[in-house]
Simulated scan of single mutants.
Amino acid sequence: MSKPFDCVLFDLDGTLLDTSYDFSYALNLLCEQHQLTPPSYDVVRNTVSQGGAAVTALAFSPDNPAKFEQQRQAFLALYKQHINLHTHIFPGLLAGLVHLTKHNMPWGIVTNKPQGLTEHLLSFFEFPTPPKTVICGDTLAVRKPHPEPMWLAAQECGVDPKRCLYLGDHPRDIEAGMNAGMQTGAVLFGYMSAEKMTNLAQADHIFRTPYDITKFLTERVK
């Protein structure tokens, strides 16, 4: 049986890497500086996919935009400083990347994380083969769920978008993959509960654990 796709693309935070602990740690440090009680780790984890401003707003009021922007920038600076303190590849997923490497299948990353933070974070990781493409939230003038970042990733991998599988843990990831004409996989071990994955039924595949992804890849890529 021929493989159903020729490229695998991953969202970054909550899909490929578990970055939630370092987001929580950075916010804790900022709260400590301001003598505030930090939100719980679980609250931060459930907010990571919404971006730095949303995480900052868990502890600081956005009512004063100028002051809030200073707090957001301070949070991001602390996050960058401690970006790889606790972050790791989701357990069980590395074997899937090894399998893709063994079968010479390109893989890549499409994230809404800014390029500066993405490149800094990825510099700490050595994958079986480096990603063929890394498209960030500011690579283009638009970002997910717009299809252009997805199309650029497919182009850089030399694969027709229809032959790409995109994996993500947020409704916009499924939307982005669908908008680009890609196959989609909903990741339920990330930062969004199944209840909040509002378009879950539209995903081509559902993965409840990283091991499910590896099992799927080893079965389909031969």
Score class of each variant (00 low, 15 high):
Glu175Lys: 12
Lys222Val: 07
His82Gln: 08
Val48Met: 09
Cys31Val: 04
Ser193Tyr: 00
Arg72Cys: 13
Phe124Tyr: 15
Thr118Val: 04
Gly52Thr: 06
Pro131Lys: 08
Arg172Glu: 06
Glu32Lys: 15
Thr118Ile: 05
Ile89Tyr: 13
Phe60Tyr: 09
Gln73His: 10
Thr129Tyr: 06
Cys164Tyr: 03
Met150Gly: 02
Thr214Asp: 06
Leu78His: 12
Phe124Glu: 13
Pro145Trp: 05
Arg72Ile: 02
Pro128Tyr: 03
Arg208Ile: 00
Cys164Met: 07
Thr139Lys: 11
Leu188Ser: 09
Met105Ile: 14
Asp18Cys: 08
Val221Cys: 10
Pro131Tyr: 03
Gln33Glu: 15
Met178Cys: 11
Leu85Thr: 15
Gly108Met: 07
Leu122Phe: 11
Gly181His: 05
Gln73Ile: 00
Glu126Phe: 13
Tyr191Phe: 11
Phe124Ile: 00
Lys215Cys: 11
Gly116Cys: 14
Leu58Met: 03
Leu94His: 14
Tyr25Met: 08
Ala26Gly: 12
Gln202Trp: 02
Cys31Gln: 08
Pro91Arg: 12
Gly51Gln: 02
Asn179Ile: 01
Pro210Ala: 04
Ala77Gln: 13
Leu85Gln: 15
Pro91Met: 02
Leu27Glu: 07
Ile213Thr: 03
Leu167Ala: 03
Phe124Gln: 13
Leu16Cys: 06
Asp204Ala: 07
Ile109Met: 07
Gly168Ala: 05
Val55Gln: 07
Gly96Pro: 05
His170Met: 05
Val98Arg: 14
Asn179Lys: 10
Ala66Tyr: 10
Asp6Gly: 14
Asn84His: 15
Met192Tyr: 06
Pro210Thr: 04
Lys144Phe: 04
Leu27Asp: 02
Leu117Met: 13
Phe75Ile: 01
Glu126Tyr: 14
Tyr79Asn: 02
Asp22Trp: 04
Leu167Val: 02
Asn64Leu: 05
Phe127Pro: 08
His34Met: 03
Ile135Glu: 05
Thr47Asn: 02
Gly158Met: 11
Phe60Glu: 08
Gly108Ile: 05
Arg72Met: 09
Tyr211Cys: 12
Thr218Val: 03
Glu156Val: 01
Leu100Asp: 06
Asn84Ala: 15
Phe189Lys: 08
Leu9Val: 03
Asp160Ile: 00
Asn64Gly: 08
Asp13Gly: 07
Asn28Gln: 15
Lys102Thr: 15
Pro39Asp: 13
Thr214Lys: 03
Gly52Arg: 05
Ala59Glu: 10
Met150Glu: 00
Met1Trp: 12
Gly96Val: 01
Phe10His: 10
Thr15Gln: 10
Arg220Pro: 01
Glu69Asn: 14
Gly137Lys: 06
Gln202Pro: 00
Asp11Lys: 03
Pro171Met: 03
Gln71Cys: 07
Val187Pro: 01
Leu117Val: 04
Phe189Ala: 08
Pro4Asn: 07
Ala194Gln: 14
Thr139Gly: 08
Leu9Gly: 09
Asp160Thr: 05
Thr129Arg: 14
His170Gln: 10
Leu188Arg: 11
Lys144Pro: 01
Tyr79Gly: 04
Val8Lys: 11
Phe207Val: 00
Lys196Arg: 15
Ile83Tyr: 10
Lys162Thr: 09
Tyr79Lys: 07
Asn104Tyr: 12
Gln50Trp: 04
Arg72His: 13
Ala154Lys: 07
Asn84Met: 12
Ser193Leu: 04
Arg163Glu: 06
